[in-house]
Design a protein around this nucleic acid. Sequence first.
DNA 1: CCCCTGCGCGACATTTTGTCGCACCCGCGC
DNA 2: GCGCGGGTGCGACAAAATGTCGCGCAGGGG
Lengths: 181, 181
Amino acid sequence: MSEAPPEGLFLIIEDDALFGRVLARALARRGHRVALAATVEEALRLAPELAPERVVLDLNLAGASGLPLIAPLLAIVPECRIVVLTGYASIATAVEAIKLGATHYLAKPADVDAILAAFAPQPPGTQAAPPAQPLSVRRLEWEHIQRVLAEHDGNISATARALRMHRRTLQRKLMKRPVRG
Amino acid sequence: MSEAPPEGLFLIIEDDALFGRVLARALARRGHRVALAATVEEALRLAPELAPERVVLDLNLAGASGLPLIAPLLAIVPECRIVVLTGYASIATAVEAIKLGATHYLAKPADVDAILAAFAPQPPGTQAAPPAQPLSVRRLEWEHIQRVLAEHDGNISATARALRMHRRTLQRKLMKRPVRG
DNA sequence: CCCCTGCGCGACATTTTGTCGCACCCGCGC
DNA sequence: GCGCGGGTGCGACAAAATGTCGCGCAGGGG
């Protein structure tokens, strides 16, 4: 077990134990070797010894963002490909993640095939087509909030002030899942 | 304020002539030199001679995607920073754009300050948050609605469908005054 | 003339806010 | 240790905003 992985090992960094195990099992069933980490610390502890080839990284790890994990992971295992998977997807964090070196960024729910596909190197000629419809008002609001929130380093109070909205309201909006569209 | 030197030339690649000119004027008023291109061809023709330092790139250029422009632009002017600005934002195209080398990706109702900020290096919590006051959620919503409404030639029903909001709600929002801030 | 679509608006049940208040953590200077 | 200032999470409740239904009315085809 302590040998260098001959075949690509998956490291799933996932807060939600249930989801993590389901994903792990699904990947294992497809013949992949899988490891699971539930916290930032655990991930950083496991990464050096496992040297995972592919990482599925959840953001929102017990309240802490998973974004800051990307750089350290790449420092430890430069070759590894990291796919970010989050239930609170936003353009702001997507841009950040990719800039930090993530391979791809997916919104939950995402099926296993989509996750695996995200690791695959650029399927040729796969230019993402712009959506036919503009963002819904709700979605746009979510994106804007995420952007401003990021600008304020996740400080909810400061963000609420910047957006001139009540902190309580912002809290509530952040708890909800981003609407699709 | 240590403003960026007026050296850097902006190249705005924008389909919508009105929006393009407004943006160009806003940037010019802040002491930047600005050029405007309305099509992919024009952009590629202008890029070599202008060697823009910063590019504002709209996706949806007369139906064609602006994404394929990123690579050629970077090939022509390797140093230039490209901010994608689109009215049809999506996480998928955002990821694509960043992977292709774009500096940032913004959804369209974006004020000039946000656009300028997007060119700044920033990531690891550098300088204290610039006093750039983001648009309030209300204001953002208003701008977005107006944009989509214009795209649908003032058709309220169609706009409501596009925004996936109830026509009655849209009517009510339109009756109110354009909130500011 | 009928049908379809868009517009404006009343009425009413739901949701979402705005607002207060309170408890609980820090980090900091005294 | 202690008080203070700021941030966070969350309950409670009244005040708005929104979702929904349902008219009536206006064009424009077929």
